[in-house]
Nucleic acid binder design. Structure first.
Lengths: 127, 127
DNA sequence: TATTGACTTAAAGTTAACTCCAAGTGGTAT
DNA sequence: ATACCACTTGGAGTTAACTTTAAGTCAATA
């Protein structure tokens, strides 16, 4: 698979994919004789994994650390598990923040609805 | 309330609070005769609101837009409601991304647990 | 009176995560 | 053969959201 194909498949720009490789988030992608990347299953699996983690806002540095530990092998299982648990904690916190904000947005939208329908006075609205 | 007190209350640095004011996320804070900020209820309410929205990752520019509309008054109710609805949609998407990532993290952590307990071979693990 | 400490400002600096650019290579279509 | 196109690189540029810095004001304390 060429970088253009992978780019389309995962909706990441070629630049972003090359950046991920340069940063070590993806193992070195195989090349043809002209030095052009030829993505295999493993490369794609990593891209998909990184994309998922990034979509939740996990930091590049953390992912780099995880990938580094992964390549060190069996000795790092404990450390990797701890890293993932820490990230899970972070995401659970983030989820709560978003939930709280969503509730607030829902309330405000409801209030605006009532104002629009004349059920409520505009000047009674607060930040 | 001084900026130091507000800073402690909302766990935002004084610099961040001044930055928010400069950017127009908070209405102009009242000052004493020496030009020192004296935060009133309204200022605090705005800070609290902005903090909540920011904690969910809502952008400064969007919040600036919302605040601007707010000060324009009743004419902008429809536009404000639409803005908030758009942000709600964004947050719902983000929530889904985080949920998907959390599920994946849970699975991986479980796998690492099983490896640690010798129930699973390390080399069978994938990205 | 001198200094301490909390406040003020405008403007420059930082960080993360891309994103773009310029210059170059090689395979293919006209 | 020549032009085109997708790819390559290192490195510079961008953006958001702060964060730091330098220089200054004022009230209270030693």
């Amino acid at each position: 698979m060429t970088i253009a194909e992978v780019s389309k498949k995962y909706e990441l720009t070629p630049d972003t994919i090359r950046y991920y490789e340069k940063e070590g988030l993806i193992p070195k992608v195989p090349r043809n004789k002209n030095g052009i990347r030829n993505f295999d299953e493993e490369s794609c699996a990593w891209i998909e994994f990184i994309k998922c983690m990034r979509s939740a806002g996990m930091e590049i540095e953390i992912l780099k650390k995880y990938v580094e530990l992964y390549w060190k092998g069996a000795d790092t299982v404990k450390e990797r598990k701890e890293l993932l648990e820490e990230q899970r904690t972070r995401l659970l916190k983030k989820q709560q923040d978003i939930n709280a904000t969503l509730e607030r947005l829902n309330y405000k939208i409801k209030v605006y609805d009532e104002i629009q329908q004349g059920k409520r006075k505009h000047f009674m609205e607060k930040p």
